[in-house]
Design a protein around this nucleic acid. Structure first.
Lengths: 119, 119
DNA sequence: AAAAGATTTCAACAAGGCTTGAAATGATCC
DNA sequence: GGATCATTTCAAGCCTTGTTGAAATCTTTT
């Protein structure tokens, strides 16, 4: 991922409405959610929601699919994974030992704790 | 990390100058860099750099330490780790199987493959 | 084809961010 | 103390973003 793409993603997530909408879609999983329901859940006027969803979809963080007269939105988890990868790389560039600190930290401790690299 | 804090961090990283400055500081490691050198490296007028560094330090992504008549800036990697943790959690909320995809992806594959997901 | 529903687009305005250069601050050196 | 250097602050102007409500678009229903 290039720097430009990263800033676009960060910009997308820098709005409270957009971050909330994305989190909501992540929680909904593959089922996604139609625009009206998102607007209701967020208590945001439809035109306002549309504005923010457009930004998210332009950045690629959400996908849209027409479903009858509804628009179904889904979170694009693979792009989010790419973003996490980018951040992880930026965090330890030239300093591998920092990566290890990262790997042993709680949030990423989905794998058993290494025996040696205790910080 | 709360949503509000996350949006502040995303906003900090949504500017090309700020993301570049942060990446530069990450690459510099614990040594950090003084303001003048950052400005020179980024080819950005001093007052402009100061504006962006202020945003980064306000968000907590960088720290400042006075050193003689210089200001030495350093990247705050632990906050970045927290941000990565936040994103990772948001990505798999209610969908643990997505977390595993995440954990086995290249950037996070610093630890041996899990046999059973520990909480 | 008309009506009703879901969503987007548009225009207008308010508000905040970015850039630039000059002035101010704070620290060192002589 | 005065000069010099590094950096920040300030103000002005510009540009972009966010909000709102009304109108437009597109789809289904009857």
């Amino acid at each position: 991922m290039e720097t430009k793409a990263a800033t676009t993603l960060f910009e997308s997530l820098s709005s409270g409405w957009r971050l909330e909408a994305f989190r909501l879609l992540v929680r909904q999983g593959p089922e996604g959610m139609v625009a009206g329901d998102i607007a209701a859940a967020l208590d945001l006027p439809p035109s306002g929601l549309s504005f923010h969803l457009k930004a998210l979809s332009h950045a690629g963080l959400v996908t849209v699919e027409q479903e009858g007269r509804f628009q179904r939105y889904r979170a694009n988890l693979s792009l989010m994974r790419d973003l996490i990868a980018y951040l992880t790389e930026e965090c330890c560039a030239g300093h591998p030992e920092r990566c290890l600190d990262l790997a042993t930290a709680p949030p990423l401790a989905v794998c058993p704790p290494p025996e040696k690299t205790r910080a």
